[in-house]
Deep mutational scan, measured.
Amino acid sequence: MAAAAAAGAGPEMVRGQVFDVGPRYTNLSYIGEGAYGMVCSAYDNVNKVRVAIKKISPFEHQTYCQRTLREIKILLRFRHENIIGINDIIRAPTIEQMKDVYIVQDLMETDLYKLLKTQHLSNDHICYFLYQILRGLKYIHSANVLHRDLKPSNLLLNTTCDLKICDFGLARVADPDHDHTGFLTEYVATRWYRAPEIMLNSKGYTKSIDIWSVGCILAEMLSNRPIFPGKHYLDQLNHILGILGSPSQEDLNCIINLKARNYLLSLPHKNKVPWNRLFPNADSKALDLLDKMLTFNPHKRIEVEQALAHPYLEQYYDPSDEPIAEAPFKFDMELDDLPKEKLKELIFEETARFQPGYRS
């Protein structure tokens, strides 16, 4: 834990890192770190609560700039109880001085990944967590956004079992017609939660990839272990087919990539493993919904509104309290091709509203 900075004593240090967030945020305490930044909790002297502050230093890398800009653009436009918001952003007053960006968010005690390492969940908890994931996802999908990296560590939890989806750095506007060349190379989302079509096709992607990830998360809540822990690309596919069985001819016809289709045709026939054999203690309604989410063919996979209306979630289902976005989200430009200098300018502009004396 960093010592509390005395008023006016300059930035606090946390594990050798400068955290320049005073005077409003003090009493910093280390939480963890990701690929390009550290997260601390801090005391907000204005709202009198502890908050989470993520320090991001992305400006050396085009990919990190892209992810940072995506996350900020999306989260500043989203407003939903099951999606983490941005409360404040701290950065230098000029673009030349801006080396880091500090993002202030609600402090959540833990995440689903940490929880599943230590606790076996009751059916009631599984049901409530799944409902909140789908409630947040309904809003995301209504904005025409794909999260693309749903996994237990991106689901934040607090002691009252509130759940918030975080990390929109890989999110995209849904565009089933656009052929994202190089899709697989830039697709760094965790393999275990990846839909089979991501490994088999490169053309376009749809909201059904997020539903697949939610199915993987439900299976993990039922058993405290990942359902498809593939060691590499082909191993991942083999794990999936080992449980779902061989795809039907109709399902194979959806695979545009001939090499991928021929690979699947070359494999020995596998039978589907019954879900109640894998999860003998699970609620039968939970397994019915799991089956509809972990469907090989993305066109037959359940959609988020149908999933919310499934009998497993009937005690929570309330369409009048499951809000959607006001308007579909649009990125003005494809960020993939922009140089990091341009992305830095866009991050600077996007964060201006939090600067003292800002006038829109």
Score class of each variant (00 low, 15 high):
3 A>I: 00
12 E>L: 14
15 R>F: 13
18 V>C: 02
19 F>L: 15
20 D>W: 00
21 V>P: 04
25 Y>W: 04
27 N>S: 09
32 G>I: 04
33 E>S: 00
34 G>W: 14
35 A>C: 02
38 M>D: 12
46 V>M: 08
51 V>T: 01
56 I>Q: 08
58 P>Y: 01
61 H>K: 02
61 H>E: 01
62 Q>C: 13
68 T>N: 10
68 T>L: 04
68 T>E: 06
68 T>K: 04
69 L>V: 05
75 L>T: 01
78 F>K: 10
79 R>K: 13
80 H>W: 00
81 E>W: 06
81 E>F: 08
83 I>D: 00
83 I>G: 00
86 I>C: 02
88 D>S: 05
88 D>W: 00
89 I>M: 04
97 Q>H: 15
100 D>H: 03
103 I>V: 05
107 L>F: 09
109 E>F: 04
112 L>G: 04
115 L>A: 05
122 S>Y: 07
125 H>D: 13
127 C>E: 12
131 Y>Q: 01
132 Q>G: 09
134 L>A: 08
141 H>W: 06
143 A>R: 13
146 L>K: 06
148 R>G: 13
149 D>N: 12
149 D>A: 15
150 L>Q: 14
151 K>W: 09
154 N>Y: 15
159 T>C: 14
159 T>W: 13
159 T>S: 15
163 L>T: 08
163 L>Q: 15
165 I>H: 10
167 D>I: 01
173 V>L: 13
177 D>R: 10
179 D>V: 15
180 H>Q: 14
183 F>H: 06
187 Y>T: 01
188 V>P: 02
196 P>T: 15
209 I>S: 10
211 I>Q: 12
213 S>P: 07
214 V>Q: 11
216 C>R: 10
224 N>D: 09
227 I>K: 02
230 G>S: 12
231 K>Q: 04
234 L>G: 12
236 Q>M: 09
238 N>W: 11
238 N>Q: 12
240 I>E: 05
241 L>M: 15
242 G>K: 06
243 I>T: 02
243 I>G: 03
246 S>D: 00
251 D>Q: 06
252 L>E: 08
252 L>W: 04
257 N>S: 14
258 L>A: 09
265 L>I: 02
271 N>C: 11
272 K>S: 05
274 P>M: 12
275 W>V: 05
281 N>I: 15
281 N>Y: 15
282 A>I: 01
283 D>N: 14
283 D>V: 13
293 M>I: 15
296 F>H: 07
301 R>Q: 06
302 I>F: 15
304 V>R: 11
304 V>P: 06
306 Q>T: 02
312 Y>Q: 11
313 L>Q: 14
316 Y>C: 11
316 Y>R: 02
317 Y>G: 02
321 D>Q: 09
325 A>W: 03
328 P>F: 09
330 K>Y: 00
334 E>L: 01
341 E>P: 10
342 K>R: 14
344 K>Y: 08
348 F>V: 13
348 F>R: 10
353 R>M: 14
357 G>L: 10
